[in-house]
Design a protein around this nucleic acid. Sequence first.
DNA 1: GCAAAAGTGTTACTCATACACCCATGC
DNA 2: GCATGGGTGTATGAGTAACACTTTTGC
Lengths: 228, 228
Amino acid sequence: MDGTLNTRVTPQSAAATHTADCAVFGFSEGVLKVLLVQRNVEPFAGHWVLPGGAMGEDERLEQTARRVMLELVGVRDLFLQQVATYSEPDRHPVRRVVTTCYYALVKPENHTPVAKGYLSDVAWHPLSEVPPLGFDHGRLLNDAHQRLIQQLRDRPLAFDLLPDRFTLTEAQQLYEGILGEALDRRNFRRKILAYDFLIETRAKRAGVKGGPVLYRLDRAALDREMRK
Amino acid sequence: MDGTLNTRVTPQSAAATHTADCAVFGFSEGVLKVLLVQRNVEPFAGHWVLPGGAMGEDERLEQTARRVMLELVGVRDLFLQQVATYSEPDRHPVRRVVTTCYYALVKPENHTPVAKGYLSDVAWHPLSEVPPLGFDHGRLLNDAHQRLIQQLRDRPLAFDLLPDRFTLTEAQQLYEGILGEALDRRNFRRKILAYDFLIETRAKRAGVKGGPVLYRLDRAALDREMRK
DNA sequence: GCAAAAGTGTTACTCATACACCCATGC
DNA sequence: GCATGGGTGTATGAGTAACACTTTTGC
């Protein structure tokens, strides 16, 4: 309640910087990946971490997250969900930093992230081969992934990660990558074909065996489903 | 990621105060209630708001929330869950305040909250009769309630709100109060009696018609269930 | 004795799961 | 022609939802 109880706001209580960190998930080559950046400044120089940045003066944290994503991977209008806020006094070794973690879903093939500023590298890492992360970002990433799993189980969130035309097998690989478990093909197909936002196209993809049918999204129907 | 991207930490980005606000739910007289405090200072003097306070120098937000609850209602070891963080630049009319909302569950009969400091009153309000709240606390309370509903649907969280001995009808009223819908008595009893943390006592309560059986909790079994 | 609340089983439906064979294509 | 992946249906079990009558007690 903003200092109404005994702990009135003081210069001390304002000493924390607030940042937004993003666990950005993408799907390519049949594998779920996360976008990481490598720091070239202390603390944690040389370490991989989640991309993030400090909240600006007239910005809310979600805007901070969007700005960081725009600057880093050049993507607008991404799907962004708040996960949690982390405030341990010693989570940043130099100064007090409170961070709010978001997760985001993007199509990697649409964007080529480039390292700028304090970063020596940017890369997609398969979620199964993430290096140890700096700060407490290993925990943030894990929490973000768990939240994504939880939300995917009752909403078809993940179709934003697929290319414009995709096969049901690709969709299934995506679900399996996120959930971390194998799914039965027939049960999966039945379940997602029960949605009305999948449109079968007549086109088939060259170079793929068995000529799988390509689907595309009915965006309006998907949005309707997501709002339920 | 703590200022690694372009938005390096500056004095501006540190200008926000961080607070923890709590939606404290209790259950008495068969009704779900929330603990509100009334401010006697501007801004929002005379308005009811959620209890909260500013994060201290060596404190994480959860500790802030616990401290506020201890000072206000004298309760330790309460069940506390983080809901979300709110950072709109204008959510506080005087200065920049970012807040993280928690919800808490307590037994009202064990604690008599007293108004101190900037507060002219403290009271339990039935959730169905909450006055318009100051700041954006109406939204916070709503979000906290929604999160509580969501979590109650897959974990038996709410038994902390019941007295030591309680009837199944009371438990059902509690669930109905939280979920905001009527439940079938037989289905409800079957469902919660399937848990093994409910212990039937031989005692019956005086003054209640029909001589309902009183139950108590097997705390260890409940904790086990909550960890699942 | 009557009003009020407690207590008790069964059925139908929906949803998740498990499981195996044939077909089309690329090589 | 064979290896690879695409495509399809059914049966079972679990969980959820709907539904009405009898018993006990306080007054």
